[in-house]
């Protein structure tokens, strides 16, 4: 199947199931709020009556944050601890949602949408969790391998710092290409796990690996195009952020809405990636 057609179908599938995008967005929004709101309260209770707070409107103020850290820095600790817990909870939630996302994008149901989503989320949670842990180990090993390779290239006394940049120029693209394979494998494994459930995860891994071996170039290319979309989106987001000169509440609000819009699109693109995988695999 043509990979562009897969992307197109992936787009339409996500568009039809756009409530799923909204669900993910709301989950992310609420969990981020759990982290950000305590910071806001900390700032209000410690420095809320200082005129120096106005300097924060201009952007990052080193002097403010340095003094804040020295005088009230103890307040950071619970916020950081809480952040870690909330992010871990979100990752678990995303693992939970994965089964539902793959099932809904495969079936694109016209009715019982919610029932299918929640049922598959619950049904495949433990299996996808084990799969995720397996790939977490794999990703770590791949990263460690390339880190060692980088270290080996720059080890010893260097002629100049160019050795470091050359090593990075070699290692980073290689790492990217190799690591990408495991990310692709992970996504396709999830698909096979949901659409053709097996007793053992290893069977799913083998099945998806066979599929990747047969369609390696196409799945790679498909993934790279999706990554490109993501990159372009982040770049546009960055450029637009620079254009907004924050001087008042209204500009803060504008900046917030713009960034939320881009976050929504990022979730959309993330699901398009899954949608295109589903399309490519099921229609091949």
């Amino acid at each position: 199947m043509n990979i562009f057609k897969a992307i197109q179908q992936g787009f339409f599938k996500v568009w039809i199931c756009k409530r799923m995008v909204l669900l993910l967005y709301i989950a992310i929004f609420l969990m981020a709020l759990c982290i950000a709101y305590p910071l806001k309260k900390l700032l209000e209770s410690t420095v809320g009556h200082s005129l120096m707070v106005q300097d924060l409107m201009k952007g990052f103020d080193y002097e403010f944050f340095n003094d804040f850290n020295n005088a009230y820095g103890v307040g950071w600790t619970p916020i950081f601890d809480q952040s870690i817990v909330v992010v871990l909870l979100f990752l678990l939630l995303y693992v939970f949602f994965s089964g539902g996302i793959y099932a809904v994008l495969t079936q694109v149901p016209k009715s019982n949408y919610r029932a299918i989503f929640w049922a598959n989320s619950a049904q495949y949670f433990w299996k996808i969790l084990r799969l995720s842990l397996f790939f977490l180990v794999i990703h770590s090993l791949v990263f460690a391998l390339f880190a060692l390779l980088f270290y080996a290239l720059v080890n010893g006394e260097l002629q100049n710092e160019g050795v470091i940049s050359t090593a990075l120029k070699i290692v980073l693209p290689c790492y990217y290409l190799v690591a990408l394979f495991f990310f692709v494998w992970q996504d396709y494994s999830k698909y096979f796990l949901v659409t053709a459930p097996k007793k053992w995860i290893i069977s799913t891994l083998v099945e998806s690996f066979r599929f990747l071996r047969a369609h390696l170039m196409n799945v790679y290319f498909l993934y790279l195009i999706n990554m490109l979309f993501w990159g372009v989106l982040v770049f546009i987001n960055y450029r637009i952020t620079l254009l907004i000169d924050i001087e008042s509440y209204s500009t803060i609000l504008l900046s917030f809405f713009v960034s939320q819009l881009f976050l929504l699109i990022r979730i959309f693109i993330k699901l398009i990636n899954i949608g295109s995988i589903v399309s490519y695999t099921s229609l091949d």
């Binding site: 992310i28 969990m31 709020l33 950000a36 420095v47 809320g48 992010v87 993330k270």
Partner: peptide
């Protein structure tokens, strides 16, 4: 003085959201 705090809050919130989306790619 809430305007500066609001700005920090909004930026921090957005970073956390973006980090969560990025982190979800590895699982």
């Amino acid at each position: 003085q809430s305007s500066g705090i609001e700005r920090v809050f909004v930026s921090f919130m957005t970073w956390i959201q973006a980090s969560m989306i990025t982190a979800s790619s590895i699982i």
